[in-house]
């Protein structure tokens, strides 16, 4: 099974690829639909601004394609901005539509009036909300690495893990074959690699427990 890492000019692809390679997962950086078609799952990485990324995906002719593939049941895993793109819309620099694969929006982090630093940068704990194979063998309270200023607002039923930053902040989401993490598993040391291994197992065994 091969993974397609979607290349739409949005940075940090290399880190994601290197992490998958390190755990022995075959993957390919690509913007070709044919290549993505030949892969067992799709990873959508991304850092930077929502609108820029959405436009780049559209320019690459991948926007409708990714949406259609995910709706057909292909595994789509968004990381950081890639996760935010899964939602209906984002308020970052004026409203921009997302892929609409998970109901919800992306808004500024709400620190509930607490004087917390924005961006939320650093290691914060995962607080599990629903059982997901993505976190198989991991403890509640595991630290993972976050870098973001905006966060998702969605129904709790879509959330597999929160983190605590002022308020409960969405850390990971999952809806059928579509999933995402706000944090960077590829930068979260050993525990992050475990999450990527779990993801590969989910794709291999079609094991999406969080429906």
């Amino acid at each position: 099974m091969k993974l397609a890492i979607v290349d739409y000019g949005a940075g940090n692809l290399r880190s994601v690829v290197k992490a998958f390679e390190y755990i022995g997962q075959d993957c390919v950086i690509t913007s070709s639909k044919e290549v993505i078609d030949s892969c067992g799952g799709i990873v959508l990485p991304g850092v930077g601004a929502f609108r820029v990324a959405a436009n780049k995906l559209k320019d690459a002719g991948l926007w409708d394609y990714l949406k259609a593939e995910a709706e057909k049941g292909k595994t789509l895993f968004g990381i950081c901005l890639g996760m935010q793109l899964l939602f209906d819309e984002s308020a970052e620099f004026g409203n921009t539509y997302g892929l609409g694969l998970i109901k919800g929006s992306v808004e500024e982090i709400d620190t509930d009036g607490k004087p917390l630093k924005i961006p939320h940068i650093g290691w914060n704990t995962l607080l599990f909300n629903k059982k997901s194979a993505l976190f198989e063998g991991m403890n509640n309270g595991t630290y993972v690495y976050f870098v973001h200023s905006f966060s998702a607002r969605t129904d709790d039923s879509n959330v597999t893990a929160f983190t605590d930053y002022g308020l409960k902040t969405v850390a990971a989401v999952e809806r059928n074959n579509v999933l995402g993490t706000q944090f960077h598993p590829e930068k979260s040391g050993e525990e992050g690699l475990k999450i990527l291994r779990n993801f590969c197992n989910m794709v291999k065994h079609d094991n999406f427990t969080c429906n």
């Binding site: 290399r14 992490a19 390679e21 390190y22 690495y145 870098v147 590829e186 930068k187 040391g189 690699l193």
Partner: peptide
């Protein structure tokens, strides 16, 4: 380093 160390 980036090939073997998965930290920022």
């Amino acid at each position: 380093t980036a090939s073997e160390v998965f930290l920022p």
